[in-house]
Design a protein around this nucleic acid. Sequence first.
DNA 1: TCTGGGGTCCTAGGACCC
DNA 2: TCTGGGGTCCTAGGACCC
Length: 414
Amino acid sequence: MFALCDCNNFYASAERLFRPELQGKPIVVLSNNDGCVIARSEEAKACGIRMGDPEFLVRDLIKKFQINVFSSNYVLYGDMSERVMHQLGRWFPRLDVYSIDEAFGWLGGINNLNSYVPKIRTAVVQNTGIPVSIGVAPTKTLAKLANKLAKKYNGVLVLDTDEKIASAVKDFPVHDLWGVGRQYYKKFEALKIETVAQLREMPEMWFKQNMTIMGQRMYNELWGRPAIPLDEIREATKGITVSRSFRNYIESPEILSEALTLYASRLAEKLRAQGLRCMYLQVFLYTNKNREDHPQHFPSHTHKLLIASNSTTDLVSIAVKVAQKLFKYGIKYRKAGVIATGLIPESELQLNIFSDHDGGKKDTVSAVLDKLNLAYGRGTLRMATEGFEKKWRLKHEYLSKGYTTRWSDIIKVI
DNA sequence: TCTGGGGTCCTAGGACCC
DNA sequence: TCTGGGGTCCTAGGACCC
């Protein structure tokens, strides 16, 4: 049996944990750039705020109901996530951390699930302050479904018989099913398929033909035959991305270079932190697709390096050069990013006879950079092309403190 | 005026190799 | 008139996830 444990309204719950006076009050958390709503407390949901709503469209609601607004504080959420996962690890022989606020646990060999599982929930809430819901079923897909239903009950739902599964899928809307997005939902809608019970009565071939191999897996999972295994040890990541929207449109190549310098620097830091180098560096630019009156431009280019690298100077110079080629005058760019792929462990560096390997000088420079920035704060030492004004940088007006990760922000009990 | 960021997997086609 | 089979790498796009 699989369990899916999911933190309730995770970001909102994490913010509220350190502001106990907000207990019972509506809270929303905004995406980067304070763009749209990405988490809501139950109270905020009741005020009519929907997931993904742009902040400027719900500003009136926020004012009217005095909703507490937070910019996203990923350092805080990351730290709280680690605590929750650590607690879960004590209860499951095998744990597959699926996202910042979710994990699949394996419950093989455990009897009395109906008394065991509620204990997990109680322990996590007690030891971390974060409320969780747990759904249990024979497959991951059904465990996700059970989890959604659990939120409506007492936070726990165990589907351990065919009868319980049948009754759970009976009225469960297909668009809430794991693996069903907008496109697949359209197909179902056309066939008047509204519930999961109706969906799983379709022939297996139909799934395969209409939803590729993913659909075939879904079919088996819905009938209680596991097709998606527990993924305990995450395989090495395939790519690492750093991308951000700009606060204002960028229309000049010089300003674009500043942004790309920062993004590529962050990317190099991420690579070094994970002990990786990349063979390919992809650069992309986006315009605002929500503005039909703006000319659109979504250029992208992948550059192949001669030698795999994670050096800030290498990646910055490539990113800036590529971006200059992609850039066109007269276009309003609102987002850019860099993606590192072809990742190899630092220790497996392959040299190229045609290139001028520097014998590790760049590695030394990078190491000094990391050391200084760790000691004195990120950005203490940086590339000059990053600029000084940075008018394009993110907006986060409602940022909470680093309650668990900064000495100066730790809560004082007086 | 203002609409996130970071991922995964699958499919298909073209270039190139032997 | 009729021109192989099998493979890799890369790109691009589409679908999905949180």
